[in-house]
């Protein structure tokens, strides 16, 4: 308002009374009414510990866990069938889904149920499953031994006398169904309400990218 007190051909006093004074009043009123007007930011829900707790992909899925105890209690009376595909009797939860490797005794030792099957008549203890896996998945086990396959925890810089925190094959993969079935997943990111954002259709066709010709249809 500094500029408007000019007197020439119009009445300064009138301008003061009619414009400046009420104008300033209205302006100050606007500032008061508009006030602080802090943008509303909702409180965030705390993070679910499940979303950040380290664990292997096998997690706590117990469906295919191996039964504890002495296998000979049952298996000493049974005559083993080398062609057996479906686990029976006491193993109803075990679903074998290991690709072409669909015989129980490909991996389990046919006569020694406390061990896994090695070359010929030899056995592999359950503690070192990688030796069994290596019979088919040699390249991956080689990678695993080199540290380039599989999960690592702890330290990348191993101190003297320290062992890397490593995981064996069966700690991440279910041997009866080795593809990951990890079920714990965390939610999508969130945006403030004011953000105009296009959310993609959740069920979009996985093959659409190379099935459609026109660039428009991709969006």
């Amino acid at each position: 308002m500094g500029k408007n007190k000019k007197k020439s051909h119009f009445n300064q006093g009138e301008f003061w009374k009619k414009i400046i004074l009420p104008g300033t009043g209205i302006l100050i009123l606007i500032f008061f009414l508009w006030g602080d007007n802090k943008p509303e930011i909702p409180e965030a829900a705390p993070l679910n510990a499940e979303w950040y707790t380290p664990e292997t992909a096998r997690g706590e899925i117990l469906v295919n866990t191996v039964m504890p105890g002495n296998c000979f209690i049952c298996h000493s009376v049974q005559i083993p069938d080398p062609e057996l595909i479906r686990p029976q009797f006491a193993h109803p939860t075990v679903k074998l889904d290991h690709g072409v490797n669909d015989r129980c005794y490909n991996c389990h030792h046919i006569y020694n149920r406390d061990s896994l099957a090695g070359d010929g008549e030899t056995t592999i203890p359950f503690a070192t499953p990688e030796k069994l896996c290596a019979r088919c998945h040699g390249i991956i086990v080689r990678d695993w031994l080199a540290g380039t396959h599989g999960l690592r925890q702890g330290r990348w810089m191993i101190k003297a006398g320290e062992e890397p925190v490593n995981f064996t094959c069966t700690e991440c993969h279910d041997p009866h169904s080795p593809k990951f079935k990890y079920k714990i997943a965390a939610p999508a990111p969130t945006w403030p309400d004011k953000t105009l954002r296009k959310v993609r259709h959740p069920n979009d066709d996985p093959k659409s990218a190379y099935l459609t010709e026109s660039i428009q249809e991709r969006f």
Binding site: L47, W51, Y182, I184, A185
Partner: peptide
């Protein structure tokens, strides 16, 4: 699974 996202936030 996006666990990395939340471990990072944590």
């Amino acid at each position: 699974c996006r666990k990395c996202v939340y471990a990072c936030m944590n």
